[in-house]
Simulated assay, not measured.
Amino acid sequence: MIKRLLLNEESIHCANCMLGHICMPHGMGSEDIERLAELVKERIRIPKGEFLYRIGHKANAIYSIRTGTIKTHIENHNGHSQITGFFLPGEVFGLDSMATGQHLSHAVALEDTEVCVMHTDDLATLSQQLPPLQHQVNRLLTGEISRSHQQLLSLGALRSEQRLASFLLDMSERFTRLGYSSQEFRLRMSREEIGNYLGLTLETTSRLFSRFQKEGLIQTQQRTIKILDRSALFNLLKTEHA
């Protein structure tokens, strides 16, 4: 069961959060940063496998991950599920609801997760007073659109091995922003979930991981990935169809 936590003076706020360099607006003075405490007044803890929200639920907030990992996915009328994103600490999700006031996807925790809640009414009010915050919101929305376009490009134009190479390089860059190794990191999603996100079957995804390891591109141990040949992964993205 999810648990809501109201913040108080003793809580960690945006000004002293170790993830501030990822999700906080750049170019803000110390006084403006302190005002961000007005924006994040509560956090939510979501146990592994639990939903934070579902498609069609009323949306009055966006979320930034403090710890853990979130998966978003959509479903059609036949019950087929398509994963639309994986979100790591410091990353913001739920942006697709800002225009409609309803969530357009499900959000579920891939591990025990804690998120910061930013109510959209508070966000709109504070953005008018703090231009860097408004710029950050615009940047996040632009990033969300770009991410969606990249996923469509991957599904429509890239070969299966290129999709996996692109995914691994993207995860490497995102873990680097968190201060972790760019070469070795642990994925919280399963091979099946990776395949779903990339538009591949579980069999194809497993075969590609085995192929990449056999060719010396990566080393895998359960869900831990070690990139051995980054250049080769980049080169895969440059190759054309035979």
Rank of each mutant, 00 (worst) to 15 (best):
S127D: 02
E111F: 11
L200G: 04
V115S: 06
T201N: 03
A165R: 02
L126V: 05
F209W: 03
L187S: 10
I145M: 06
E173M: 09
G179L: 10
G101R: 06
L202W: 02
L169D: 06
L164I: 10
S182C: 00
M171I: 11
C116R: 14
R188I: 01
R207L: 14
S166H: 13
Q134D: 12
L110R: 04
C116G: 11
A165L: 07
R174V: 05
E161S: 10
L200K: 08
F185G: 03
L202F: 13
F212Y: 10
H119F: 11
R159K: 12
G156V: 06
H149R: 07
S160G: 08
H103T: 01
D121W: 09
T142G: 05
L158D: 00
P131G: 12
F185R: 07
S166Y: 13
F209N: 06
C116Q: 14
L130S: 05
F185H: 05
Q134I: 03
S160M: 01
H119Q: 09
T205R: 10
T204S: 11
L202H: 14
V108M: 12
E173T: 08
Q162F: 11
L110A: 03
P131F: 10
S154C: 11
S181N: 08
H149L: 15
E184N: 13
S181Q: 03
L168M: 14
R207S: 11
R139G: 00
Q150Y: 05
H106L: 07
S146M: 11
H103Q: 01
F212T: 03
L202R: 13
R191S: 13
H119P: 00
R174Q: 11
L153I: 13
F209H: 00
L126Q: 03
L178F: 04
R159W: 02
I194H: 00
F185C: 08
L169F: 06
S154E: 07
Q102K: 07
T204C: 07
R177E: 14
